[in-house]
Design a binder for these strands. Structure first.
Lengths: 209, 209
DNA sequence: AATACTATTACTCATTTGTATAACAAGCAA
DNA sequence: TTGCTTGTTATACAAATGAGTAATAGTATT
């Protein structure tokens, strides 16, 4: 008569939350934020919808957590590469640009997630804060790298000037990243990266990078 | 007994479609794409929900039309200013940058609309095409302006090189535009514009703009 | 002033959605 | 094995949503 209750596995809180978050990402990537329904999320996570509420008070909280994880993962990927690079400051800056402009940082799925969440700015509480934190974190990395380079070259360190430069460099990388994500097939990867590197070179008035 | 049927005005197709589209924009701005329900759109447009289907076969078509109008309006605003400017090529390029980095082009509502739509890339048919058209239109304007400047300065016109520069300039403006839209309160408008201008100057290796 | 056209309203329906609650079972502890 | 905690499922429900259909009234035309 009645279908047997489906079997399940009790997972750790950490693991389950990660599953739910990546399921949320998957939904958004496939069909935009509107496709991230509690049922579809649960389905992809291999879980029943009711479980969401056991880990998140409501759907909005899950979305916030997903946004936060999405952004910090991206920055982390770009920064992590630097940790294994002991070369010159110029080489480190170049590496940072390269990493930011190719997968896994630059890829369509990341843009969809980013766009979906930022489109909710001022509509969903906390989204603005998460954005600002992520933005400043990334920009600060730019600033640090630029400072390194200037020190290496024995250039004058005008704090104001360097800050302006880092805003510009950050904007350039962001702009390329966006277009690269959206039309990744339009550009040759190597050329695209070189364009980024040489543009930053121009912005900083460097001779080589 | 029965409430009287509400009175209405028969509007021209052109006017009604414009109303519905701007109502859709308003919904998205207020609460993201999920808030753009047929009822709320109709409500803001001062119309009953059923009317949507009289002008658009389904909701997706209305969304597409809204995206298309949103993007072309922005580019048009930046281009239109150029038509009234007969000055030097450098001055025209500067004006273009300035216009792109302040209201009405750079403002939070435009970013929300842009982000909402692009997040649907590959999820809603035609969105990719509308994006590509808008992107190339804007980049072509950059390319034309840069070419003008180079001609004015008697520089060599390497088509490939100019194309790369226009991609970079476009990315820079886009990147600044995005951040400016999202945190318009973080930057002083005048400083922000000057940052844009001087950065483009660096990218093109110009002495003045 | 009468007529015809159709933009617009009013109403309906089947689905989907977020959330709530109670029952169940996995797996740890004794 | 037995009992206990709680992660997980099953089910329910009210609200919202996109879409369909028929009636109505605005308005241009004559």
């Amino acid at each position: 008569m009645s279908t047997p209750r489906r079997s399940f596995r009790r997972a750790s809180e950490e693991e389950r939350r990660a599953d739910l978050i990546s399921a949320t990402q998957e939904c958004i990537i496939q069909g935009g934020i509107g496709a991230a329904t509690t049922r579809k999320i649960a389905d992809i996570a291999g879980v029943t919808p009711g479980l969401l509420r056991h880990y998140f008070p409501d759907k909005t909280s899950l979305l916030r957590a997903t946004y936060q994880v999405t952004m910090s993962t991206m920055t982390q990927q770009a920064v992590q590469v630097l940790e294994h690079c002991e070369s010159t400051a110029a080489a480190r800056l170049r590496l940072f640009i390269e990493t930011s402009l190719k997968p896994p940082v630059m890829q369509p799925r990341n843009h969809k997630l980013w766009a979906s969440f930022t489109s909710l700015m001022n509509a969903v509480p906390e989204i603005s804060n998460i954005h600002r934190e992520a933005y400043l974190e990334f920009r600060n990395v730019c600033e640090a790298l630029i400072t390194e380079v200037f020190i290496e070259l024995g250039r004058e360190l005008d704090t104001q000037h360097i800050k302006r430069l880092s805003i510009a460099v950050n904007a350039l990388i962001d702009g390329l990243w966006v277009e690269g994500c959206m039309a990744i097939e339009l550009f040759d990867q190597e050329e695209f990266i070189e364009l980024g590197v040489s543009s930053v070179q121009s912005l900083l008035k460097l001779e080589t990078l």
